[in-house]
Nucleic acid binder design. Structure first.
Lengths: 133, 133
DNA sequence: CATAATGATACTCTTATAGTATCATAAAGA
DNA sequence: TCTTTATGATACTATAAGAGTATCATTATG
């Protein structure tokens, strides 16, 4: 079981790298060099971040990507929502049929509590908070 | 992303049902009736619980399963370890190659903290704690 | 010996994750 | 306008975990 998948992980690193570079615009190739990750994979991630409004892109010579949102406003949860399947820690279903006992299931209550706390903590991890050394 | 998978979930329910029944021995068929889950799937789970030492089994007429460990000593984490892939919330690897920056990765540090807390909380959920109404 | 139970095992199906590859398009600059 | 340098769109494969099924072997009871 993984909380953070590679998509999300790479997205964070790419965004981090764009901020650190202190350039207006950073190309995919520069990011590949700095981050040592597969070009095609990273390119797709950047395209998605662009579509989702976290990056602005520009084509042609001197083109590349720039942050569209301030680092303090990008959280790990935002990226997980974009790149990962929804967080449902305990679904209580069998073949799409919800467990009949779901309302007073003591296990679900406890798991739900844990889920809430995890989400709160992931919300608190902003891109900015990862930059501080 | 799921924290608890169906295997684990069903294992908990089955154990819970064995305790609640207050019988010495409960057969797979009785559990299937009470829990409304697929027979083959449940049978396999019971066999694994037996192998792992959480249940004792007896064959033949009047046979079935009985708890081998007290409900206070069985935790959700125990069952997750049996039925789920290891909990590694953030692996920082690319194609088996560990990320070179792993030692001072600020993201990893934060995710690790969350992981530790989640595990502590799951350890605190014993079978017994789920029985109290 | 028949029946009622578990043991062992092998199989399929689906989904999420992980990654690759290719062609189209647009901007910059000579 | 043509070449280069960049991203856009999209389609494809591979792997692993999870979810579930099915069958035959074995053992205990009466």
């Amino acid at each position: 079981m993984k909380l953070i998948t590679r998509n999300t992980d790479y997205a964070i690193r790419a965004l981090w790298c764009i901020v650190e570079s202190k350039k207006e615009v950073v190309s995919a190739d520069q990011l590949v060099k700095n981050l040592d990750m597969p070009r095609s994979f990273l390119r797709r991630i950047l395209q998605i971040l662009n579509k989702e409004g976290l990056l602005n892109s520009s084509k042609g010579k001197g083109g590349g990507f720039a942050l569209a949102v301030s680092p303090g406003k990008i959280t790990v949860i935002d990226l997980m929502k974009i790149f990962q399947s929804p967080i449902k820690l305990n679904e209580c279903t069998f073949k799409k049929k919800v467990c009949p006992n779901i309302k007073n299931c003591p296990l679900k209550k406890k798991i739900d509590e844990i889920e809430k706390e995890v989400i709160l903590k992931l919300k608190a991890i902003t891109l900015e908070s990862l930059l501080i050394k």
